[in-house]
Design a protein around this nucleic acid. Structure first.
Length: 495
RNA sequence: GGCCCUAUCGUCUAACGGUUAGGACGCACGGUUCUCAUCCGUGUAAUCAGGGUUCGAUUCCCUGUGGGGCUGCCA
């Protein structure tokens, strides 16, 4: 059975950093291609010169690679942005000749026409229409131009665009893989500009021409494109091209239930990565927004997503992008990392906080990372959390107040600890340390007696337990001295 | 204003037309011989409204309402 190869594409504009919504769209496009052993293409739609942002292309391509959503064709990242595939170029600004050719072809077929109207006229027309509460649409004035008039205007170099000639009174119907049947009347469609006066195409022309030329047969994109899909269908039909399948994904919404956008703040994928969300977790999370496996499974690897993905499992309504569950999921992923791997991923954050931390033995670093592994929600939290290992904390007796310990008890506890620690072979396991303490601590409530010690060691209200901390210090040659100095310092507060 | 999409706990979401409307996050409480975290357990909380169709609607249809999107020589 020879089936047509499934070809999907992600086609962002390089107008800024890749954002969460784009990542999810790219993911679903990738999943569908991979599930069908097809091809995933990365095409860049830089047709609006005014909005192009330097560096955006690099960011998009690189970020996709961070998530292992590697394109089979188009742009990809290998230290620099590279391009591959035999249907390129995959940058629309390099395909201007094609769009011009197809636009003129459309004119010759009578499905498009030249328009010479000025911005002023269009603005006036629009405000007149909105004032009358009728839908703003171009009035097809330039369609009335004779061949000669058009030739003259072109000869005189008058600014011109090419508009789609939308026929009246037609119902455009298409089947959306997510939403089912959708029907829109051509009476509600405007004579969309296809080729701008600067020679660049608009999205509507470029997307159709490129999807056709690149063999894209599944158009998967955000729901905001539903209203313009009929225009695209009109163009496909004018050329007699076979329609792709359409799948319009439910929108990602901000907490205020608006379409997620750059304006809504923190949506750049790059920012999430920098805060220390793991790509695996972020991808897993974003996959579950608008899609579900119909089972109770929450954790998915990329391969599992490929295996499980289908359009029937997509849902139709927008999903709020809410960070709480992401934090939880990220914590789950962090906990599952091997210490060596976690250490590697933490390195940039540790370097940021403690420039000299590399002088410490790896064994020590592994130990303190293991201590915090269960507590981290984001990698970026590591610096604050392990600070007390690298610099002596303040002893704050206030932290003991709620324990209702009096000064005598605190002093007792600390001097007991001092004695115990001074007296044993230090490089021993946590269990041994713990046993020593439980054997030798005086005081009735041994649990409470450990509080002052922990506070002396960390200066924190919440932290790993004192035995684990001491075990970690035990790795250092001067570990005992560090601990004793902290206890002495704490004790000095009670003299 | 017009057109389109959409509607289950606070959030993400399950539920051949028949379920005590399920799970996850969050939150609360309890357990895990110190705190925090982890882990475990318990609890909390929803079918937008009104009409139909049906023996029976979360589910199908209609109307309304809410939410969202589009309505650019932006994408």
């Amino acid at each position: 059975m020879d089936r047509v190869e499934v070809r999907t594409r992600f086609a962002p504009s390089p107008t800024g950093f890749l954002h969460i919504g784009g990542l999810r769209t790219a993911l679903f496009e990738f999943l569908w291609a991979k599930k069908n052993n097809g091809k995933f293409i990365l095409r860049i739609e830089d047709t609006d010169q005014a909005r192009n942002v330097p560096g955006a292309l690099e960011n998009i391509v690189q970020t996709l690679t961070d998530f292992k959503l590697n394109p089979d064709e188009g742009f990809y990242w290998d230290g620099v942005v590279l391009e591959k595939g035999d249907r390129g170029p995959y940058l629309q600004s390099k395909r201007l000749g094609l769009y011009k050719k197809y636009a003129e072809d459309l004119v010759n077929r009578g499905n498009a026409y030249y328009c010479f109207c000025s911005q002023e006229r269009l603005t006036a027309l629009r405000s007149e229409q909105t004032a009358k509460k009728i839908p703003p649409k171009y009035d097809k004035l330039c369609l009335k131009l004779t061949k000669e008039e058009i030739q003259n205007k072109i000869k005189n170099n008058e600014p011109k665009v090419i508009r789609l000639n939308v026929p009246p009174n037609q119902q455009i119907r298409f089947t959306d893989l997510v939403h089912g049947q959708i029907e829109i009347s051509t009476n509600d469609l405007d004579d969309q500009v296809l080729l701008k006066s600067d020679g660049f195409p608009t999205y509507h022309l470029a997307v159709v021409v490129d999807d056709y030329l690149m063999g894209v047969n599944y158009v998967i994109r955000g729901e905001e494109w539903i209203p313009s899909t009929p225009k695209h269908i009109l163009i496909y039909s004018s050329f007699g091209w076979e329609l792709p399948k359409f799948a319009h994904l439910p929108l990602l919404l901000s907490k205020s239930r608006k379409k997620l956008s750059k304006r809504e703040g923190d949506v750049a994928v790059k920012d999430f990565l920098e805060q220390g969300y793991l790509p695996e977790a972020l991808l897993n999370f974003v996959a579950l927004l608008g899609w579900n496996p119909k089972t109770e499974q929450e954790k998915f690897t990329l391969d599992e997503l490929i295996e499980e993905f289908s359009f029937e499992k997509l849902n139709k309504s927008g999903a709020v992008f809410d960070l709480e569950k992401l934090d939880w999921l990220n914590g789950v992923y962090i906990r599952e990392l091997k210490i060596e791997e976690l250490h590697l991923r933490l390195l940039p954050y540790l370097t940021e906080t403690f420039t000299e931390f590399k002088k410490y033995p790896k064994e020590f670093l592994f130990k303190i990372i293991a201590l915090e592994q269960g507590r981290l929600k984001k990698l970026s939290e590591i610096g604050e959390r392990v600070r007390y290992f690298f610099s002596e904390p303040e002893f704050n007796p206030e932290l003991l107040r709620w324990k209702k310990m009096n000064n005598e008890e605190i002093k007792q506890s600390l001097s007991d600890a001092k004695k115990i620690i001074s007296n044993f072979e230090f490089q021993i396991s946590k269990q041994e340390i713990e046993k020593k303490f439980l054997d030798e601590l005086t005081g009735k409530d041994k649990g409470s007696m450990l509080w002052p010690l922990r506070i002396a060691l960390t200066g924190l209200k919440a932290s790993p337990g004192p035995f684990e901390i001491m075990e970690a210090f035990g790795v250092l040659p001067n570990g005992r001295e560090i601990i004793l100095s902290r206890i002495k310092k704490a004790l000095s507060r009670f003299r």
